[in-house]
């Protein structure tokens, strides 16, 4: 039940893009086409889940026991950067087709604040976004990370679909490009607000 709540809350109610404002840059950057949006979502999903699992373990078995919490930010960002590199290399070796699909998005992910955001959220008690009020255990952390990235993918794919339509319509000059995109996201976010209160 707890898991189910975490998943619904992370995907719909506290959608990472539309209500937490994380990962906006790639969200606006690569949502022009449905196919690239899907690729990016896949890569983000993969990295967020993996990075959260690794940083969670590092935090609880390395930083906390040695009282090195003050290195948290540095350690996490380095781990994420290294992880992204490793994923890139491994993927190239074992699954060239998957690499072809996700490869170009991987380097962009290091600076996607959604990854670091989720990694920090699950180990910090104060920054809870509709999460249970106790510290998350490892399983919950990974499930939360995975569900969050699914929410990211959902928002991304929905928005890319809209933008493909938008590209065909006649938009006033000053609105062209990012402004109309932002207004569209605003309306999408309003739609997602309808989910709020679903999980209490």
């Amino acid at each position: 039940m707890e898991f189910f709540l975490i998943i619904i809350s992370a995907i719909f109610v506290n959608n990472i893009v539309l209500s937490q404002f994380l990962g906006i840059c790639p969200f606006l950057g690569v949502s022009n086409k449905l196919s690239t949006a899907t690729g990016m979502s896949g890569a983000v999903c993969f990295v967020i889940t993996l990075a959260t699992a690794v940083t969670y373990l590092i935090n609880s078995y390395l930083l906390v026991p040695f009282k090195l919490e003050f290195l948290q930010t540095i350690a996490f960002i380095l781990v994420i950067a290294a992880l992204v590199q490793m994923v890139e290399i491994v993927l190239k070796k074992i699954s060239p087709s998957l690499y072809q699909a996700l490869g170009i998005f991987l380097p962009l992910i290091t600076t996607n604040c959604a990854v670091l955001g989720v990694a920090i959220t699950v180990v910090t008690k104060e920054f809870t976004f509709g999460l249970p009020s106790h510290m998350l255990n490892f399983g919950e952390a990974v499930v939360y990370a995975f569900a969050t990235s699914l929410g990211y993918g959902l928002a991304m794919v929905l928005f890319a679909g809209m933008r493909e339509r938008l590209a065909l319509s006649d938009v006033p000059k000053a609105f062209r490009g990012v402004p109309i995109a932002l207004v569209t996201v605003g309306i999408l976010a309003m739609a997602f607000m309808g989910f709020s209160g679903m999980v209490k």
């Binding site: 809870t128 976004f129 509709g130 999460l131 249970p132 009020s133 209160g197």
Partner: peptide
């Protein structure tokens, strides 16, 4: 004491 509200703890 704490409880889960609308936007977190």
């Amino acid at each position: 004491s704490s409880a889960t509200g609308f936007g977190g703890t």
